[in-house]
Design a binder for these strands. Structure first.
Length: 616
RNA sequence: GGACCGGUAGCUCAGCUGGAUAGAGCAACAGCCUUCUAAGCUGUAGGUCUUGGGUUCGAAUCCCAACCGGUUCACCA
């Protein structure tokens, strides 16, 4: 399966409830025009209508090169002819200009003024409600292991997953956010064993450590001792492989796993205790990040159902059994290799668990589409999972979406937990918040606020900086995080956008105090400045952007849009006064324009999971 | 080695369903606070879009090849 193509699967009908889409409108007119002038039946591939580039005058640009053969005229003459026809037959248009083979068309100011009014009338502007029969989309994200705390990679996963769920919901789908916790396996046993051996009964309470960090420390401790043991064994002349097989620590860990699987009560009890420490820690991190789930699955509860499904598949002849008793899927007809599903001793592997989880999910929810937010290192895994689920008869298996995102790297390269170069999630969040607080203090922004308010604003802004930093990047690409240069608060950043919002709110509060009303008078149309018109046009684009973000599963599309919008507003804010405008009609219009800009900024940031401060 | 993904300013990133002079931010430099929040605004400088072919009226964008980087091809998860 082509994973690029999969990104385009979610095709949802939407009609802009605000106004007739200007692309549709002009597209239809242009078709009529080409028919009338040149008897040309133009299909969509010939009709190239695009947003006019900033440096030219106009709103939409028609590329006329494709029509010059039919017109039997030069590009300029063709464009001129079409432009003239369109202007005559389209009341919404006010003018056109021709540059080379490009026909730039402008909609009238009163058209845009009406558009602003329509936008203002729609409180959920840009969001498309999910009806009862809307597709049910389940989004899996986070998926942590319970042997170590969350790090920057998990942050990217969580932020992408959470934002994606809001974007998909905004595109008119019903959404279930889900998490699959990997709470069993050899890695968990390593932490448990180390704690048993060297922990001296340490608990989160006794040490004051966050539970997930405490367990993580024992995982590291295990690794340290294991490494030491390996080194000693190698000194005695064993090869690395031999040493790994001889290691007593590892043998003990494996023994513990067997005991766990056998249901040994002491081991199970320790396991539950330590996992609960971790969950309390995770809950805290999730809460701080502002992400949540509708349904959490645990692999300890799903892996057995995976075994069942695999054995069912074996009975049906979908899979086969090897001489040693292991169970395999033959994927050679799909151009892939064979894949192990159950070991000879009957224990399950990663794939088995994912099949089991999928089966349970489908029993509980009538899923139309399943989206897995998982790093791109697992592309192959999901390719195989998709095929296997399809073979097992899950309707959504074939079209499951692996939302495959890139790694977060440090300037030196990959983060490596063993080398201690991972960026801890809790630390980073704290750091962002305290940087935000320091910045506010330096600038004296929050002197008039209560300390609770100031703390909340620092939290909102610090998290906004972190979230925007991560979400503005195309999810598919690897991204670099440099811990030495802390995340910026100026320029193309979350705080920049939040600041724009806070500024507008400040103006609006004052407008309210002064008793001004946000409203539009029709006769204002010919008095509007270019900057004001272009702001309205930016607002108008929002629903299109939401749809595009949904179709391409990309929060980055929203992020780039809202940055552009904020920048546009700041320019307007710099050049024009709102409250001191002496013409009251113009003043009231600017209040409305500001109000609507704030609304769209708030909604766009909401789709990114970023909060907005009333002041900052 | 096979498969997949990426390579755009010093740095971090947009732009990629082919379209006009390749855009932002950071860093650097020069300006703008007696008017609604200067976390802002304006300007200067910075580019063989990895390379070479091809398709086209037109290529950063599509195709082919090479180079570089990453991931994966586990009875790890």
């Amino acid at each position: 399966m082509d994973f690029q193509a999969v990104f385009l699967i979610l095709q949802l009908d939407f009609s802009c409830p605000i106004t007739m889409n200007i692309y549709t409108l002009l597209g239809d007119k242009t078709r009529q025009c080409l028919q009338a002038l040149y008897q040309l039946q133009a299909d969509d591939s010939l009709l190239q209508l695009q947003k006019t580039k900033k440096e030219f005058e106009g709103d939409l640009t028609l590329v006329v090169f494709p029509f010059i053969k039919a017109a039997k005229k030069s590009p300029e003459a063709t464009a001129e002819e079409i432009g003239s026809w369109l202007l005559q037959h389209t009341p919404e248009l006010s003018s056109y200009n021709v540059i080379k083979g490009f026909l730039n068309l402008s909609f009238s100011a009163s058209y845009w003024l009406n558009t602003l009014q329509d936008i203002a009338g729609d409180t959920d502007f840009g969001l498309f409600e999910a009806g009862e029969s809307a597709p049910l989309v389940m989004i899996e994200y986070s998926s942590p292991n319970t042997n170590k705390p969350l790090h920057l990679g998990h942050i990217r996963n969580n932020l992408l997953g959470f934002s994606l769920s809001r974007i998909v919901a905004a595109n008119g789908c019903r959404v279930v956010k889900t998490n699959i916790v990997n709470d069993r396996g050899i890695h968990i046993c390593k932490s448990m064993l180390a704690w048993q051996k060297w922990g001296k009964g340490e608990t989160p309470e006794s040490s004051g450590k966050k539970g997930d960090h405490l367990v993580g420390d024992y995982y590291v401790l295990f690794d340290k001792n294991y490494k030491q043991e390996l080194a000693e064994l190698q000194k005695q002349g064993l090869s690395l492989e031999e040493a790994e097989n001889t290691s007593l620590l590892m043998q003990e860990a494996r023994e513990m796993l067997r005991a766990w699987e056998a249901g040994d009560s002491e081991i199970r009890s320790l396991w539950e205790t330590m996992n609960n420490w971790v969950y309390l820690g995770f809950d805290e991190s999730y809460a701080k990040l502002g992400v949540d789930f509708d349904k959490i699955y645990y692999e300890s509860q799903t892996y057995l159902s995976g075994k069942e499904k695999v054995l069912e598949g074996l009975d049906k002849g979908i899979f086969y059994r090897n001489e040693d008793g292991s169970v395999w899927a033959d994927l050679s007809s799909e151009g892939l290799d064979r894949k192990l599903l159950l070991r000879a001793d009957g224990t399950s592997v990663y794939m088995t668990q994912d099949i089991g989880t999928a089966a349970l999910r489908f029993e509980e929810y009538p899923i139309d589409k399943m989206i897995y937010v998982v790093g791109n290192e697992q592309n192959y895994h999901f390719k195989v999972l998709s095929i296997l689920l399809d073979k097992l008869g899950f309707a959504w298996g074939k079209d499951l979406v692996h939302f495959s995102y890139g790694m977060v790297e440090l300037p030196e390269g990959k983060m490596k937990s063993r080398e201690g170069t991972v960026v801890d999630a809790d630390d980073l969040i704290e750091e962002m918040i305290s940087t935000a607080r320091e910045t506010s203090e330096e600038l004296g922004k929050l002197d008039s606020c209560s300390s609770e308010e100031a703390a909340d604003i620092a939290r909102i802004v610090g998290l906004g900086a972190l979230k925007y930093f991560i979400l503005k990047v195309d999810p598919r690409k690897n991204m670099t995080f440099n811990p030495k240069e802390s995340i910026d608060f100026n320029g193309n950043t979350g705080p920049f956008i939040q600041y724009t919002y806070a500024r507008i709110r400040s103006v609006l509060r004052k407008a309210e105090e002064l008793g001004y009303r946000a409203q539009v008078q029709e006769q204002l149309a010919d008095r509007l400045a270019d900057k004001e018109l272009s702001l309205i046009k930016n607002l108008y684009e929002f629903p299109v952007v939401v749809k595009e973000a949904g179709n391409s599963y990309s929060p980055a599309v929203i992020a780039n849009y809202v940055y552009e919008l904020a920048k546009e507003y700041n320019q307007f804010y710099h050049d024009y006064s709102v409250l001191y405008e002496t013409n009251s009609d113009l003043r009231d219009f600017r209040i409305l324009l500001s109000d609507q800009t704030a609304k769209v900024i708030r909604t766009a940031l909401y789709l990114l999971g970023i909060e907005v401060p009333e002041r900052m």
